[in-house]
């Protein structure tokens, strides 16, 4: 699969703006739509040019009665110029799915391509990916929450400036423009200093609050790119929640296109 949410790829790689410039420009815009778009572009600009990365992910699923269960996944990501990123996830836990690998090519337009390697069957299966809205590995994260952030995937509306834990943030509403989203809108809290996502509220098709994601434990890599190492997704309708913890982030590990194709899937373990 991909990297994580909102961290992103290029497309605006050339911009390379400092946060101050971006904030100044955003301050000058009065139209809420334009202003929201400007925030999104700045987010993308702040997270472009990272190349490739590897990381370990632990998912802790919690049901309403408090039972917990873990998922462990290794994630490789490759930034793609002019399109969505490529991702490869290898499952380590649960034991029975160890070695199962999931390859995605996300696209700015149209459906993503997805393949799954099943070690028990020793075969790569292509799966239909129109169902972006379904839960990822039974968690509260949907596939669409995890695929790469692209400016073109949403329409925006700037709501207000606010504060989270003493940090100044922009609050922006986004409306998915891609097909088959499970959401009518999301509301994103982005800090003004580094354009990192701190919180996203998700609203279902009938407009009711569905989930909230809180991001924390930020660390900086390559002196530029910030990654939140803890993400907590709470489902307000079912009372279930999922905690995602990231570790062992590595950048520029020398991954290239050949590490992200169907034949690489089989040897991914």
């Amino acid at each position: 699969m991909k990297k994580f949410l909102i961290l992103a790829s290029l497309f605006l790689a050339s911009v390379g703006v400092s946060a101050d410039d971006a904030n100044k420009r955003i301050a000058e815009i009065s139209d809420a739509k334009e202003k929201g778009l400007a925030v999104a572009k700045a987010m993308k600009a702040h997270n472009t040019g990272w190349g490739d990365s590897e990381a370990k992910m632990t998912m802790i699923l919690r049901d309403k009665s408090g039972n917990e269960t873990d998922r462990k996944v290794r994630v490789k990501s490759l930034e793609v110029e002019g399109d969505g990123d490529k991702g490869l996830s290898v499952f380590d836990e649960p034991r029975d799915v160890e070695g199962t690998a999931f390859l995605t090519y996300s696209h700015i337009e149209g459906n993503d391509d997805q393949w799954l390697y099943l070690p028990a069957l020793k075969r790569v299966k292509r799966i239909s990916s129109s169902n972006k809205s379904g839960p990822w590995m039974g968690s509260e994260f949907a596939y669409e929450d995890l695929s790469s952030f692209e400016v073109e995937k949403y329409d925006y509306k700037f709501l207000r400036e606010d504060e989270i834990d003493g940090e100044k943030v922009y609050v922006v509403e986004s409306y998915p423009t891609y097909d088959n989203s499970g959401y009518s809108k999301t509301i994103t809290w982005v800090d003004q200093e580094h354009f990192r996502v701190h919180r996203i509220e998700f609203f279902d098709q009938k407009g009711d609050a569905l989930k909230t994601m809180e991001v924390s434990d930020f660390k900086q890599y390559l002196d530029k790119y910030w990654r939140g190492h803890k993400q907590v997704m709470t489902n307000h309708q079912t009372g279930k929640s999922t905690v995602v913890k990231w570790s062992d982030y590595q950048f520029n590990t020398g991954l290239d296109e050949d590490d992200f194709n169907k034949s690489s899937l089989k040897r991914a373990r």
Binding site: T100, L116, K125, S130, N131, K132, S133, G134
Partner: peptide, 11 residues
């Protein structure tokens, strides 16, 4: 796992 990955929200 494969089936779960293929189902839309609510299904």
């Amino acid at each position: 796992l494969m089936y779960e990955m293929s189902l839309p929200k609510g299904m």
